[in-house]
Amino acid sequence: MTSPAVATSPRIAPSSASRRRATRVQRVAIPYTMLAPAIVLFVLFMAAPILYTVVLSFQTVRVSGLGLGAADKKLIFAGLDNYISALSDPQFVASVVRVLAYGAILIPVMLGLALVFALLLDSRRSRATKFSRVAIFLPYAVPAVISSLLWGFLYLPGISPVVYILNALHISAPNILEPNLVIFAIANIALWGGVGFNMIVIYTALRAIPSDIYEAARIDGATESQIAWRIKVPIILPSLIMTGLFSIIATLQVFSEPTTLRPLTNSLSTSWTPLMKVYRDAFIRNDIYSAAATSVVIALGTFALSFVFLRIVQRRAFGQEDS
């Protein structure tokens, strides 16, 4: 992209006053011109849909009589009705609690494994690091729907090769699709797909640490594990926080895995996670208005949770940089 300032300069009027005015106009216009595509895209595809969702969430359709004619339907202002029914719906509350439990299972394990893998790959004594890195990262490239189908085949007791082998060894395998265990089944799919991505983020941060810090530590007699826990982990803490934040948001939005597994089992309801409930309300029950209200509630909840999380960890992680 060539600079528009250079291109337009020959056309500036000779008088110095007008030139000054022109440059002032340019100074304001050029940045906005260059930002325009981004602003237009943002307004069209982010701000407008969000605003529309909010508008929808305050509306509802009122039917009269049998509701079989166009005249029998009216769009009316619903006030906070949709919000009240969303927040007072026991299914919604249950789905939020379920997703928090899911996050409590998934996030520590996923980030823990990602950190361990990253530290191992970064360690001087590791062999075949390139291959391992790709191997751990590869599941991230598999779309969640596909990986859920793959795991579904491994979970279903009737066709699972794992269950078959365990049975052949006379070990009774628990049915992981049972209502009490299915949360682990789904966390496992997300874990399989998510560890690689988080590992790469952490690993990249590790590679950015100057090696003279390690040399100094070794001269002081630090062992490899001491270097890992006392030097590497504190330095990459911002990366850990960022991956943690992404994971929290992804957790609240879990949808593909349970939706894909749902037809395979009796254990997953249509409102198993908050987003599944939104999907059901909007596209199965055709009630886009209460779905919009629930979406706004989820978005605000995600926002609040991210904010609280950052608030708690910010001082510890970024304290030195701020002072």
Partner: peptide
């Protein structure tokens, strides 16, 4: 006019019952 609601309620409720 709300077969979709009844059917989706069926999948939830009878899944629990069958389980």
């Amino acid at each position: 006019p709300n077969v979709n609601v009844a059917y989706s309620a069926y999948t939830d409720e009878f899944a629990k019952a069958a389980q």
